[in-house]
């Protein structure tokens, strides 16, 4: 998305854009385009960014499109996407760890881009296509990145794993032949404490080629 904007400057073409996580630019842009995207799926929203009318602090009704399903919920405008997913919708795959856009454990895809869901408000995510770790596999088969995580023992305690899988998916979605340097760069917004990076790097590299 933002990487396609020529005003972003030449140093950040699609290939160089860090694929993982939140950036100030996407955050601001997310607020700006919310209304248009909401309009596109035709739901009436009280928390419209284009009306410039303050919402909250009381809960507002919102609709989130998650893993292809529409979820209606009422949240205070300050509720982050991670808290909406985990506390309201029991989608607990994404983890809350640093809660300030550093560690990547909360990574989900929003409109196909990886986003730190601890640093996006739930109301901003309206009208956007949210994909969580729960949505990328079926009962019978895992996403190639997930399957390769298992093959390469790319997990220990596993708490960072969902975020790393989503960051890995973002890499392979955008680049079918990533080099190991591409993989390392794409994973650089995620932190593992047990020390699983050796397996994680191999898993993402192989998943792209699977």
């Amino acid at each position: 998305m933002s990487s396609k904007n020529p005003t972003d400057g030449p140093a950040r073409g699609p290939d160089q854009e860090p694929r993982q996580g939140f950036s100030r630019r996407t955050f601001i842009e997310g607020v700006g385009i919310g209304a248009g995207a909401v309009g596109a799926i035709g739901t009436a929203q009280p928390a419209r960014a284009d009306t410039h009318e303050p919402v909250g602090p009381d809960p507002v009704a919102i609709t989130l499109n998650i893993n292809g399903k529409s979820h209606e919920l009422k949240v205070e405008p300050r509720v982050t996407l991670i808290d909406a997913l985990r506390n309201r919708l029991d989608l607990t795959g994404a983890k809350k760890v640093c809660d300030r856009a550093t560690c990547g454990a909360c990574t989900v895809m929003v409109d196909g881009d990886p986003v730190y869901s601890c640093t996006m408000l739930a109301i901003e995510a309206q009208g956007r296509r949210i994909e969580t770790i729960e949505g990328i596999s079926t009962e019978d088969s895992m996403h190639p990145v997930q399957a390769q995580f298992v093959e390469h023992d790319a997990q220990q305690c596993g708490f960072c794993t969902p975020g790393l899988v989503m960051a890995g998916k973002a890499i392979v979605d955008s680049n079918p032949q990533p080099t190991m340097a591409d993989v390392e760069s794409g994973l650089s917004g995620n932190i593992c404490r047990c020390g699983t990076y050796v397996g994680v790097r191999k898993a993402v590299y192989d998943a792209a080629r699977a």
Binding site: G93, S137, D153, Q155
Partner: peptide, 21 residues
Amino acid sequence: HNRVDGPAKARGAAKYSYDRN
């Protein structure tokens, strides 16, 4: 051997204490 609990963790299905609702 592949880790027995690998798929549950890779799928985000493993329920940790923090995940209990």
